[in-house]
Amino acid sequence: MPKEKRVDPLTSEERGQYIKRFIDTYKDPKWDWSKYDIHHVVPIQYGGDHSFDNLFPLPRDIHQQVVTPW
Rank of each mutant, 00 (worst) to 15 (best):
D8Q: 15
Y46H: 12
K20Q: 10
N54V: 01
P43K: 13
I23E: 00
W70G: 12
D28L: 05
I62M: 09
W33Q: 02
D61E: 14
D32G: 06
G47W: 07
Y18G: 01
T68P: 07
E4F: 14
R21P: 00
R21D: 01
R60T: 11
V7T: 13
E4G: 05
L55R: 01
P57Q: 03
R15G: 05
T68H: 15
K35V: 06
F52K: 06
Y26E: 04
W31C: 04
S34P: 09
L10G: 06
H39L: 10
V67Y: 10
L58D: 04
R60E: 09
D32E: 12
L10D: 07
Q65N: 15
K35T: 13
P69W: 09
I62F: 12
G47K: 07
I44H: 04
H39E: 11
F22D: 03
S34Q: 12
K30D: 13
S12L: 12
V42E: 02
L10V: 08
H63K: 06
Y36A: 04
Q45T: 10
I19C: 01
T68I: 14
G47D: 08
P59A: 04
E13P: 00
D61H: 12
I23L: 00
L10K: 07
Q17T: 10
R15W: 03
H63R: 08
I23G: 00
H40I: 07
E4R: 12
H40L: 08
V7S: 09
V66D: 14
H39Y: 11
P2N: 12
M1Q: 07
E14F: 04
V41Q: 08
K20F: 00
P57A: 02
S51W: 01
W33K: 04
P2H: 11
L10S: 06
G16N: 14
S12A: 12
R60V: 04
W70S: 15
Y18V: 00
I23T: 00
P69Y: 11
T68M: 11
D24Y: 01
P43T: 10
E13V: 05
P69I: 04
I62Q: 06
T25E: 14
S51M: 03
P59S: 05
P29L: 08
K35C: 08
Q45N: 11
S51P: 11
H50T: 10
I23V: 10
G47I: 05
P2Y: 10
E14H: 07
R60Y: 09
V42H: 00
G16Y: 09
V41Y: 08
F52E: 07
D37Q: 06
Y46Q: 13
D53V: 00
R6I: 14
W70A: 15
S51Y: 01
P29N: 06
F56A: 11
E14M: 10
R21W: 01
M1K: 06
L58N: 05
Y46K: 13
F52G: 02
F22G: 02
N54P: 00
D24C: 02
Y18N: 02
K20P: 02
V67T: 08
T11V: 10
S12R: 15
W31K: 13
K35F: 09
T25Q: 14
W31A: 08
Q45K: 12
K3D: 13
D32W: 05
V41M: 09
V42D: 02
I44R: 15
K27A: 14
G47R: 07
T11A: 09
K27H: 14
I19V: 11
L10H: 07
K20V: 04
